[in-house]
Computed example of a mutant assay.
Amino acid sequence: MSIAEDARTPPKGPSLVALLCVVTALTLIAAGGGWLLGGQLGLHLPGATKVEDTKRVVGEEVPTGSVVPLKPILTNIKIPQDVWIRLETGIVARPGEKVSDELAATIAGDFMAFMRTVNLMQLRGPAGIEYLRTDLQERAAMRSEGKIEKVYIWALVME
Rank of each mutant, 00 (worst) to 15 (best):
S2L: 07
S2D: 11
I3P: 00
T9V: 10
P11S: 12
G13F: 10
P14Y: 10
A18I: 13
L19M: 13
L20Y: 12
C21S: 13
V23H: 01
T24L: 11
A25K: 10
A25N: 10
T27I: 07
T27Q: 09
A30C: 15
A31C: 14
G34F: 13
G34T: 13
L36N: 08
L36G: 08
G39Q: 13
Q40T: 12
L43D: 03
L45T: 14
L45M: 14
P46V: 11
P46C: 07
G47M: 08
G47S: 14
A48E: 14
A48N: 12
K50E: 09
V51K: 14
E52Q: 07
D53L: 10
T54I: 10
V57E: 08
V58A: 12
E60Q: 14
E61F: 08
V62Q: 03
V62R: 04
P63L: 05
V68W: 01
L70Y: 10
K71W: 08
P72H: 12
I73K: 14
I73P: 03
T75H: 13
I77T: 03
V83D: 03
R86S: 09
L87N: 08
L87T: 11
E88G: 07
E88K: 14
E88D: 14
I91F: 02
A93E: 12
A93V: 15
P95A: 12
K98S: 06
S100M: 01
S100E: 04
D101S: 01
F114M: 02
T117P: 00
M121S: 11
M121D: 10
M121H: 07
G128N: 04
G128W: 01
Y131G: 03
R133Y: 01
R133V: 04
T134A: 09
D135P: 02
L136V: 06
L136H: 02
A141W: 04
M142V: 05
M142W: 02
G146T: 04
E149G: 07
V151A: 01
W154S: 09
W154G: 08
M158T: 07
E159V: 02
E159Y: 00
E159A: 01
